[in-house]
Amino acid sequence: MEAETLREIVSENRELEQKLTKRNEQYIFDLKKSLVAANLSEEAQTLALHEILPQLVDGQKSGITARQLFGTVSARTEAILNKPEELPESTPFLMWLDNALLLFGVMSIMFSIMMLWSKGKTQPMGILTLVLASMFGGYVFYLMYKYVYQYDRPGMDKSKRPGWLKTGLILVASMFLWIVVFAGTSMLPTVINPVFDPIIVIILGGVAIGVRHLLKKKYNMRSSLAR
């Protein structure tokens, strides 16, 4: 964590501690001693207190004590020490990649099954169309997350949400371009946009979904529609 950010958290912690009742103040004092005895780093202690203090101050309004909220000092210390390691937040590139792989997998399987079911009566989808449509569609879904869905997550500052007019124009324009990419590439000659056997395309789609699953576990790839 950056030093400036850590200093801000330390400052916020101090301000919150000044608002504690005597009983809660003693609880935090004992908790700090317990965390020091457990050899927890100063940064980890600061972050742990930053999670606890706002809840304590808020609970005081209803007469709820630290012990009622978090149990004994030893129990809270144990919970802090054994807290699961949080994975880093997914980056825009990984979110786009997650979307693109999912779209490629779903479209490849869906269109190929439709083609097999209709016994060749359905217009075949070229591999270039599937790839480019998946890549561009993945970015469209990322924009939906960036301008809409991320602000529905718990703890997000909804005051930073862009205006609905700006959001609507961006999403409508990107959706239109996505359709243009889809339609434009489908008209390309098969030399540039070859059509593979539906079974092969289904296999490629399955591989894309499998790769997505592995990457999600390794890199904490967040889906754009996740809240």
Rank of each mutant, 00 (worst) to 15 (best):
L81H: 07
L81N: 12
L81V: 13
P84N: 05
P84H: 04
E85H: 15
E86Y: 06
E86S: 12
L87A: 12
L87N: 15
L87Y: 11
P88Q: 10
P88C: 14
P88R: 13
P92L: 04
F93R: 10
M95L: 02
W96Q: 03
L97V: 05
D98F: 12
D98T: 11
N99D: 13
N99E: 12
N99Y: 03
A100L: 09
A100F: 01
L101V: 04
L102K: 09
L103R: 00
F104V: 06
G105T: 02
V106M: 03
V106G: 00
V106H: 00
V106P: 00
V106W: 01
M107K: 07
S108L: 03
I109F: 00
F111C: 07
F111L: 14
S112G: 02
I113K: 00
M114Q: 15
M115T: 07
W117C: 08
S118E: 07
K119R: 15
G120E: 11
G120N: 08
K121Y: 13
T122P: 09
P124Y: 05
P124G: 07
G126S: 05
G126Y: 02
I127W: 02
L128R: 06
L130F: 01
L130T: 06
V131L: 15
L132I: 12
L132R: 04
S134F: 06
F136T: 10
F136E: 05
F136A: 12
G137A: 04
G137Q: 04
G137C: 02
G137Y: 00
Y139H: 04
V140P: 00
L143K: 03
K146A: 11
K146G: 07
D152P: 02
P154M: 04
P154Y: 03
M156I: 03
K158S: 15
S159M: 10
S159W: 06
K160D: 14
G163K: 07
G163N: 10
W164K: 09
L165E: 08
L165S: 08
K166N: 08
G168I: 14
L169A: 09
A173S: 08
S174P: 04
M175W: 12
F176P: 03
L177K: 03
I179E: 11
I179S: 07
V180N: 08
F182Q: 14
G184V: 13
S186D: 14
S186H: 13
M187R: 09
M187K: 11
L188A: 13
L188E: 07
P189F: 15
P189S: 13
